[in-house]
Computed example of a mutant assay.
Amino acid sequence: MSDAGALFLPDPPPARLAGAAGGEPRLQPAGPREWRVSGDWTLLALRGRYDEFRQRIAAAMADAGDALWDLRELGQLDTAGALTLWQGWGHRTPARLLWLPEHVTLFAQFLQPGALPRQKPGLRPGLAHAGTALLGFTRQALDIVALTGRLLLDVGHVLRHPSLIGWREISANIFRTGAQALPITALVGFLVGLTLSYLISKQLKTYGADIFVINILGLAVLRELGPLLAAIIVAGRSGSAMTAQIGVMRVTQELDALSVMGISHTVRLVLPKVVALAVALPLVALWTSALMLAGGMAAAGAQLKLDATTFLHTLPGVVQPANLWLGWTKSMLFGGLIALLACHFGLRIKPNTESLGQGVTASVVTAITLVIVVDAVFAVLFSNVGI
């Protein structure tokens, strides 16, 4: 690096030999138009004081732009210290500068073209973050559509070659996502039904409309709450397990091994999980709805003195079969959607543990959110069906 006012001194001044260098970074005036930089200007020594020194250097440059800067008493200087001086000087060397040859390399890197790019004016941080989020959402949506297309093509291929169907994998996934989920769905369903019936009964008792608790519970549970609650529980329980399973296969390079052997990921991993959860979730939803109604009967019997016989005889007459079929249809769609999202995020996981945790979290959150959105769409489209 060359500068008309910069002087290179190969030997330090007497003060440095006497031990003046080292220790806390210092910036002191040495004369009317002279500044002396001494001490250690390193990452550790300047920790938490970068802005302070940058402002002091900038103020000194503003007061006297042609002042002499003496760096010969510096003890240690690293890139952090050199960058602090460089930024305080205004991204240029002073007109009058005394330094040592070992400082040349540190400051020369800042004179390279593009070494310190100036920040270009752009969008506000909020708009930039929103744009980044929208771009990420669009990419995720396109990847899901692509995965769905590959899955449909593989389904056609498997139907033409039934020997490729993984019946053992489908059966194992039905057991894991369906049978093993019955205890938790039974407990949650019973408690939710109990609470819901208690609140409804308390309000209906005020107006003397006790019998209508059966209408409200039957319609709400069989059509909306049962399938929705079962889908949310399965998304958090089984969806996360599917994502973690595929993610671990990515970390252990098992997915790469399948690709090397010419085995399709969608046929071997995605298709059995989607089919199994689409079959198992309607059964889990029916089980959850039954336990919710059982909890509702218990609360109605305690609050309104409605016996179970009256409840069970009245229920088929006030709830049309179309509501039950609508609930089952939604459950099948929820199951396929949850499994598809779980496999999508599992296949996107990178071979490291941090990405595995992020993928599982994103899978559960996205699945639950989309289940609620799809349920709301069904509620609007079929608002006049089965009433």
Rank of each mutant, 00 (worst) to 15 (best):
D3T: 05
G5Y: 02
A6F: 05
P14R: 00
R16W: 14
L17F: 13
L17W: 11
G22E: 07
G22L: 06
P25E: 03
Q28T: 14
G31T: 03
R36F: 00
R47Y: 14
G48P: 08
R54W: 00
R54H: 01
R54F: 01
Q55K: 03
R56E: 09
A59W: 03
M61G: 07
D63V: 10
A64H: 14
G65H: 04
A67S: 08
E73D: 15
D78P: 06
A80W: 02
A80C: 05
G81C: 03
L83A: 08
L83Q: 07
T84N: 09
R92A: 08
L98T: 01
P101A: 02
L106M: 11
A108K: 10
P121M: 11
G122W: 04
P125V: 07
G131K: 05
A133S: 04
Q140V: 13
L152M: 02
L152T: 10
D154V: 08
V158H: 00
G166N: 13
G166C: 06
E169C: 07
T177W: 01
A179H: 04
Q180I: 08
P183T: 04
T185K: 04
Y198L: 15
I200R: 04
K202E: 05
Q203A: 06
A209Q: 09
L219N: 08
V221E: 02
L222H: 01
E224L: 01
L225S: 02
A230C: 13
G236A: 11
A241Y: 01
M242W: 09
A244C: 06
A244S: 14
Q245I: 01
M249W: 13
R250Y: 02
R250L: 02
T252G: 07
A257D: 06
L258Q: 05
S259L: 10
G262F: 10
T266M: 14
R268P: 00
P272F: 09
L277T: 03
A278M: 08
S289G: 09
A290S: 04
G296I: 11
A298Q: 09
A300S: 14
L312V: 15
H313N: 12
T314A: 11
G317A: 10
P321N: 07
P321V: 07
L324I: 15
L324H: 09
W325T: 12
W325R: 12
T329Q: 12
M332I: 15
F334K: 03
L341E: 08
A342T: 10
H344I: 04
I349T: 07
N352V: 11
N352E: 14
T353Y: 06
G359H: 10
T361A: 13
A367N: 11
I368G: 07
T369R: 00
D375Y: 02
G386K: 00
